[in-house]
Simulated assay, not measured.
Amino acid sequence: MMVSMQSKAFAMVLALGLVAGCSSTGEMPEDGTYDSDSSTVDQEGGSTVYGGDDGSGISSEQMTEEERRRAREEAEQGEEAAMRKITTFYFDFDTAEIKSESRDVLVAHAEYLSNNPNQDVRLEGHADERGSKEYNLALGERRANAVQRFLVINGVSRDQIETVSYGEEKPAVMGSGESVWSQNRRVEMIFE
């Protein structure tokens, strides 16, 4: 439950930061200059990021191809690390089909696990309270197995993955109603 709340909080902060970072008034300050942390694009298409009051900065034209490649790799690794912080995957009512918005995150987990063969993971399948206990145990198992199949197809060894179903026995949120049930229909990824 705590992981789910943390994941949601992280996603909200990330979304707010994206919105705030993308907003712009398009107005130039009265003195005709920008703050020291702004970036500009010259007429040839290169960009310069200024790092301080002394006007020093880094120009993309001055970067070597190797430095650009390294910077891209570091950015991709940062994105993958951020995606791997998401460890709870939600499902629609009465289905074990992985949602499209979960696929990129699961691919990032698969890459991590395939690159770290000594890392094991437990997939815990859950269901909401509707249906019999037996049906919900089977549904939780189908959901955990669906995530397992996705990871295996993307390069993870079956030996690294354990699946377990709790059905409706360990709800993330107590109560009834769609907002509660939608949070209980999930698979949690627990790294061991």
Rank of each mutant, 00 (worst) to 15 (best):
H109F: 02
A110Y: 03
A110T: 03
A110W: 04
E111N: 15
Y112P: 00
Y112H: 14
S114D: 04
N115T: 09
N115I: 00
N115K: 14
N116D: 13
P117L: 02
P117A: 06
P117N: 07
N118S: 15
D120I: 04
V121F: 01
V121T: 05
V121G: 02
V121A: 07
R122L: 13
R122N: 08
L123N: 01
L123S: 02
G125N: 07
A127D: 09
A127K: 00
A127S: 15
D128H: 11
D128F: 06
E129M: 10
R130S: 10
R130M: 03
R130V: 12
R130W: 08
R130E: 12
G131R: 12
G131Y: 09
G131D: 10
G131L: 06
G131K: 07
S132C: 06
S132T: 15
K133M: 07
Y135N: 10
N136P: 03
N136L: 05
L137A: 11
A138W: 08
A138T: 13
A138N: 13
A138V: 10
A138E: 14
L139N: 06
L139C: 02
L139W: 04
L139T: 08
L139K: 12
G140M: 01
E141V: 00
E141W: 06
R143P: 05
R143D: 05
A144M: 05
A144H: 03
N145K: 13
N145A: 15
A146R: 00
A146H: 00
V147M: 05
V147D: 02
R149C: 02
R149G: 09
F150C: 03
F150R: 03
I153M: 12
I153E: 15
N154A: 08
N154F: 02
G155R: 06
G155V: 04
V156I: 01
V156R: 02
S157D: 12
S157C: 06
R158A: 12
R158K: 14
R158V: 12
D159M: 10
D159P: 02
D159N: 13
Q160P: 07
Q160D: 08
Q160V: 08
I161W: 04
I161H: 05
I161D: 04
E162N: 11
E162T: 14
T163Y: 07
S165Q: 08
S165K: 01
S165T: 11
S165G: 08
Y166M: 06
G167C: 01
E168G: 11
E169T: 15
E169R: 12
K170S: 10
P171L: 08
P171Y: 06
A172F: 13
V173K: 13
V173W: 09
M174I: 11
G175M: 08
G175T: 09
S176K: 13
G177Y: 08
S179G: 05
V180M: 09
S182K: 14
S182R: 14
S182N: 13
Q183G: 09
Q183R: 14
N184W: 03
N184A: 01
R185W: 01
R185Q: 01
R186L: 07
R186F: 03
R186P: 02
V187N: 02
